[in-house]
Design a binder for these strands. Structure first.
Lengths: 240, 240
DNA sequence: ACCTAAGGTATACGATTGTATACTTCAAAG
DNA sequence: CTTTGAAGTATACAATCGTATACCTTAGGT
């Protein structure tokens, strides 16, 4: 009698278990669990592996978490920058007559709002296609492990720096100094991350959530511009 | 031989264990643990009680958590409103000539900023004197238990409503409609809560963190006022 | 062709866990 | 007084936990 096909196949042994364990962790944590509440055996069971296999790849649960975060960052960071450029490119050229802000605040504010809206839409699309990764990320951002918290905070700081750089490079808001811009980016980065939980959990309110995010970003940027003494640049765009 | 005093004293048996268990939970979670990662025996051990005593008072850990949150809310909500009135009272009467915003934007903006600063200072003082409660609160706000998350979210919504009511009643920002005001309050409530973690963990940066919070609040309120079409009310206060 | 180390497994052990059952104590209502 | 119910304890047990030790398989370098 011959052995069934699936018993004779040897999968490629290239650290397959590592993937399985990381995926299992994502699966489990996405359903009302936190990393710190998982047990080794539970995780291995979900991954379909022997408990000891965990130690072949990770020192402890923090190690696992850091690996997940590193992968998450790799998957998100560059795409996010690309999204922003893409959004800017799809909007700006249409009005590329390059009217200065002083000349026509309304037009330039509309530009900004459109890039804003497009970027946010693309970001949340990304969230919706990687829900589990975002769930762990947000959960562990204020979770039990100090190591994890610091790693995620650093990740979000990096995102904020990217955002600030892009806004400056694309000349979206000329009235903003570098310092305030970076501070705002940190806030926006964090709040958008947190909002992504709502976006995942409340599929019927996604349009609303997008609007919320857009409003937050616009409010912050405009407020900061005014405080920076460049209010004349923007206030004209909102008067009747 | 007489028994030592502490053995003969019968503490009032009015659910003493309940207090001990809640305190134990706060103690344990404040030190790199989450509620969902606690074990029943661990908690009982910390409280100095028999494991089974837990069930005399709580159905499960969610029940414990909800009780903690309820108590937390009771301790914070009214004091917070009082703080805001106190801050407003300590600042407003000095300038109570009641100059309209249109007449003197600089003066009125200064009023707002002072109330803002005072409230935030008082709030963070409160945080510093109840650190453990805030740590659990923030940790469970995005934690594993859905029940807990909803409860904490409701709590923060209540805080936001309080804030919106107070701002309106104290006439701090006449240029803001009720809708946007409430939306902003929600954001501020959440962000301030999260900032309180930094305030607890980084005692040497507390002044900085206060400034951060003040800036955030000011930026949001001003930005929203401009978007609402009342930019003329505020923009004058920041021009050279 | 051999060796080695990485990836994965099997088994076992003591510690810890949640909970069930039964017992105690004591405050207060009857 | 008696009763009764709430608060807390003692003991016990099966399940699960983390981890130590030893073993198996295979890809890749020499």
């Amino acid at each position: 009698m011959e052995a069934p096909w699936f018993m004779s196949i040897k999968k490629n042994p290239q650290a397959e278990g590592k993937r399985l364990l990381m995926d299992a962790a994502l699966t489990l944590t996405s359903n009302n669990r936190s990393l710190s509440s998982l047990s080794l055996r539970e995780l291995s069971r979900e991954a379909g592996l022997n408990p000891n296999t965990f130690y072949r790849h990770f020192k402890d649960f923090d190690d696992l978490g850091l690996t997940i975060i590193a992968e998450l960052t790799d998957q998100i960071r560059q795409p996010l920058r690309d999204l922003r450029r893409e959004a800017a490119a799809s909007v700006l050229p249409l009005h590329a007559v390059d009217v200065s802000w002083e000349e026509n605040p309304q037009l330039n504010m509309k530009r900004f709002m459109q890039v804003n809206k497009a970027t946010i839409k693309l970001f949340f699309d990304f969230v919706a296609s990687n829900p589990n990764a975002f769930i762990v990320g947000v959960r562990e951002l204020h979770g039990a492990s100090k190591v994890m918290r610091h790693a995620l905070r650093n990740m979000m700081s990096a995102f904020a720096q990217d955002m600030a750089e892009d806004v400056e490079m694309l000349n979206l808001l000329p009235g903003l100094d570098k310092g305030p811009l970076l501070a705002l980016s940190e806030v926006i980065s964090r709040d958008t991350f947190l909002l992504s939980m709502d976006y995942i959990e409340l599929p019927d309110q996604r349009d609303n959530i997008c609007l919320q995010a857009e409003n937050l970003v616009a409010t912050l940027f405009i407020g900061s511009t005014v405080i920076g003494g460049q209010g004349a640049l923007v206030v004209g765009a909102f008067e009747d």
